[in-house]
């Protein structure tokens, strides 16, 4: 479904991704963890072309994302992205946030788009917030709307970029529950997160990144019980015993 092959990415002289390769199968949930600055968010953002790449290739299904403007556009319609800072459109109410993509990108009728949006808002547990503006919502609610907005485009893959890192602790679980529901429904997901509980419970595979490379990847049982690398062990002990 998604295939990154020998991807390189620099910011000036700083190498953020160094020869990274990763494959994600249909219906698979891959959780990417690692210290900050390890390149995990950048990795995620190369998949839908929010970051350009200097070398290698990113494939979604059978087309190369970075090959042309047209492919890039196609990739963005096949992938839904959820951001750390939610990034809801502040000038649109909740319903319009969710329908704006289907109406303007997929050229659906307003009626059809609203039908989809309303169903999704029920799914993320916010059916009563349709007419509310983002600034009146809690962080957890905003993030659930953001998930609905991405799902409204019927993506084949969902990309999550630290979706709970900007949330107050009591709101983290409401967002994780929605994500778990998606995983149960068989959505292909790539999740960058620090939520080890989520990784343990939901991931099919955990990928550990450090300093621009994928150091190791394994199913969660194996990954958390017998990490192979010293740096993985150090990271896990820091994050689990804090």
């Amino acid at each position: 479904m998604i295939k990154l092959k020998n991807v390189y990415k620099n910011y000036g002289s700083l190498e953020v991704l160094k020869n990274v390769s990763l494959t994600v199968a249909q219906g698979e949930v891959v959780v990417v963890i690692g210290p900050s600055g390890s390149g995990k968010s950048t990795l995620l953002r190369t998949i839908n072309g929010l970051e350009t790449i200097e070398g290698g290739d990113v494939w979604i299904n059978d087309f190369s994302v970075h090959a042309s403007e047209e492919n890039l556009h196609k990739a963005r319609q096949l992938t839904g992205m959820v951001f750390q800072q939610f990034n809801l459109f502040n000038h649109k109410n909740v319903l319009d946030n969710v329908t704006i993509g289907p109406i303007n990108v997929q050229k659906k009728s307003r009626l059809e788009a609203e039908e989809i949006a309303k169903a999704l808002l029920v799914k993320v547990g916010l059916p009563e917030k349709e007419q509310v503006y983002p600034s009146k919502l809690s962080g957890g609610q905003q993030q659930r709307v953001a998930i609905a907005r991405a799902l409204a485009m019927h993506p084949e893959v969902m990309l999550f970029d630290e979706p709970t890192s900007a949330l107050d602790p009591e709101m983290i679980s409401e967002v994780l529950e929605v994500m778990k529901g998606l995983a149960r429904d068989g959505m292909t997901m790539v999740v960058v997160t620090h939520e080890m509980g989520f990784a343990h419970e939901v991931a099919d595979r955990v990928v550990f990144m450090d300093d621009g490379i994928i150091l190791e990847e394994a199913p969660p049982e194996e990954f958390f019980s017998q990490p192979k690398h010293e740096r993985t062990r150090m990271f896990l002990s820091r994050i689990l015993n804090h």
């Binding site: 839908n48 929010l50 556009h73 809801l88 993509g101």
Partner: peptide
């Protein structure tokens, strides 16, 4: 970025 990510 959010707008680009939904394909605009």
């Amino acid at each position: 970025e959010a707008a680009l990510s939904i394909g605009m």
